[in-house]
Each structure stands twice: as C-alpha cells, then as structure tokens.
C-alpha cells in the first residue's frame, strides 16, 4: 500500500495526536511528541508496526503527539493511511 495523496487524521487535543501522511518513496516517520524524550521510541514502534500490518511501503508519516495512548496512535495512523491511500474496503484482520 502506498500513500497516494496528502491526508490528515486526529486532533490537537491532549491525549490525542495528529497524523499527517503524504506521498514519498519509501517509508519515513517523523515523531514529535510533548513526551518525546520518554516515549519517542515507543511511539515510533507503534507507528512502525501499524504500518507493517497494513503493508504500507511508501509514505511520509508525521506525528504530532499530545500524550496519546497506544490504541489512539494506532487508530489515528490507520485512519490517516487509509485516507491517504484512498482505501474504501477495509480488511479488519489487518487492522485489529
């Protein structure tokens, strides 16, 4: 799966995150977090595994985190990717 167009998901509220995706060759992930020093690596690994589950091969993923739980990170990344890849039919076995 490739990111075809720019897309956004999430909010700027506390305990949430905003995910921006755009077309790219290869995967690039940039994490900016208010809790970056403590949890930057953890956030990145959640993002990476979420992308891997969806077989995303190309895309730039920018995360602005406001202290979200892993489940919210996963959901927001999935949403931004699915919007950016213009996927309508979901394969839930890859999402849960």
């Amino acid at each position: 799966m490739k990111i075809q167009k720019e897309a956004l998901a999430g909010t700027l509220e506390s305990s949430d995150l905003m995910v921006k995706v755009s077309p790219n060759s290869g995967i690039e992930i940039i994490v900016n977090s208010e809790v970056n020093k403590q949890f930057g690596a953890q956030i990145r690994s959640v993002v990476e595994s979420t992308l891997a589950q969806l077989n995303v091969t190309d895309g730039l993923i920018v995360i602005d985190d406001k202290g979200a739980l892993d489940c919210a990170i996963k959901a927001r990344v999935q949403c931004a990717v699915l919007r950016g890849a213009e996927v309508e039919e979901l394969d839930w076995s890859k999402l849960l």
Binding site: E6, A7, L8, T11, L12, E13, S14, M18
Partner: peptide, 16 residues
C-alpha cells in the same frame, strides 16, 4: 481553555 487549539485544528482541517 484550549479554544485556540480547537480553532487551529478546525482551520487546518478546513484548509486541507
């Protein structure tokens, strides 16, 4: 009261 934050979020989404 985070009204500004919501405002910017709405603005960013509208622009998108």
């Amino acid at each position: 009261n985070n009204i500004n934050l919501g405002l910017l979020e709405y603005t960013i989404k509208y622009a998108n």
